[in-house]
Amino acid sequence: MGTEEPLVAVEGLRRVYRSGPKEIVALREVSFEAAPGELVAVRGRSGSGKTTLLNLVGGLDRPDAGRVTVAGHEVTALPEEGLLELRRDVVGFVFQSFGLIPVLSAAENVGVPMRLCRTPVAAREERVRVLLSLVGLTEHAGQRPYELSGGQRQRVAVARALANRPRLLIADEPTGQLDSQTGRQIMRLIRALVRSEGVTALVATHDPALITLADRVLELRDGVLAPA
């Protein structure tokens, strides 16, 4: 990856949650970089800070200290409107719970981000067709989420996350609701899409079998990055 500028740069992130007089430090002085086209796994026990870290990088939450830069955008300095644009145009999200709209078909779910961007109909339909083909769901385009298996629903969610050609894909325990074999298929799919689409991916997982597919692994322990 040479001397290429990092796509993601995280410097000194700290996040504290307060519950009455108590303070819970979720992240302490976390710093790392991710290169363009790199698949970085973030592992750690439940409560180690994985979701907090991903939310801060993706602009879903703000840190108490530190800085995040994604594709040249200083996420931590953006106003709310800028964060909306970042999440629409630069970052794609995949969640453990799939997050599909029940009344829409697989194809319509994948097309939602492009509707929000007012992508012309012909271009939108072609992109949906390409993405459903990439995730192996061409024959299921007209089916609604309840007609699909868990693995198929997560494939739709991955395709939707890539709809607007994001530079960064953030996946928070994307295999958490799937059996191990299906989970491995989803991680292989993300691995293949990172390569074919040139996307950087940040994937939180605690599944050791899935870690092996990453280019690099970051381990969080009680909100601190463990030494490599």
Results as ranks from 00 to 15, higher is better:
109 N>G: 12
59 G>Q: 10
92 G>H: 01
25 V>Y: 01
219 E>I: 02
79 P>Q: 12
6 P>A: 03
196 S>Y: 10
156 V>D: 06
126 E>Q: 15
190 I>F: 09
72 G>M: 03
120 P>N: 07
90 V>H: 01
46 S>I: 02
221 R>H: 14
157 A>T: 08
184 R>D: 11
132 L>A: 08
14 R>N: 12
141 A>T: 14
114 M>T: 03
126 E>S: 15
87 R>M: 00
146 Y>W: 13
151 G>V: 09
212 T>N: 11
63 P>H: 11
103 V>H: 07
180 S>W: 04
7 L>H: 00
200 T>R: 00
203 V>W: 01
155 R>F: 12
45 R>K: 13
189 L>W: 14
200 T>E: 04
160 R>V: 03
44 G>V: 09
61 D>G: 07
31 S>E: 13
32 F>L: 06
8 V>G: 06
110 V>T: 11
77 A>L: 14
187 M>V: 14
70 V>P: 12
3 T>D: 10
166 P>G: 10
222 D>R: 00
190 I>D: 01
163 A>P: 02
123 A>H: 09
23 E>R: 14
169 L>K: 01
108 E>S: 04
26 A>V: 11
34 A>Q: 07
168 L>E: 01
176 G>F: 07
115 R>Q: 13
201 A>K: 05
152 Q>H: 05
225 L>V: 11
7 L>W: 02
15 R>M: 01
64 D>Q: 12
197 E>S: 04
105 S>C: 10
214 A>L: 14
91 V>F: 04
221 R>F: 13
27 L>S: 10
96 Q>W: 05
1 M>P: 11
187 M>K: 03
122 A>V: 13
4 E>W: 06
204 A>Y: 00
36 P>Q: 01
44 G>M: 09
20 G>E: 07
221 R>Y: 13
161 A>I: 10
99 G>Y: 07
124 R>I: 10
166 P>F: 06
75 V>Q: 09
86 L>M: 00
93 F>L: 09
95 F>C: 03
39 L>E: 07
31 S>C: 07
171 A>F: 09
144 R>L: 12
40 V>T: 13
114 M>P: 01
55 N>G: 09
173 E>K: 00
168 L>N: 05
36 P>N: 03
192 A>Q: 12
190 I>C: 04
133 S>W: 15
41 A>P: 10
55 N>H: 14
165 R>V: 04
139 E>G: 15
15 R>P: 03
227 P>F: 00
104 L>H: 03
60 L>W: 05
27 L>V: 12
212 T>R: 15
27 L>A: 11
158 V>T: 06
216 R>Y: 11
213 L>I: 12
156 V>W: 11
57 V>A: 07
213 L>R: 02
8 V>I: 15
112 V>A: 05
113 P>D: 00
29 E>V: 02
125 E>C: 01
111 G>C: 02
97 S>G: 14
78 L>H: 07
98 F>L: 01
113 P>L: 00
104 L>D: 03
225 L>I: 09
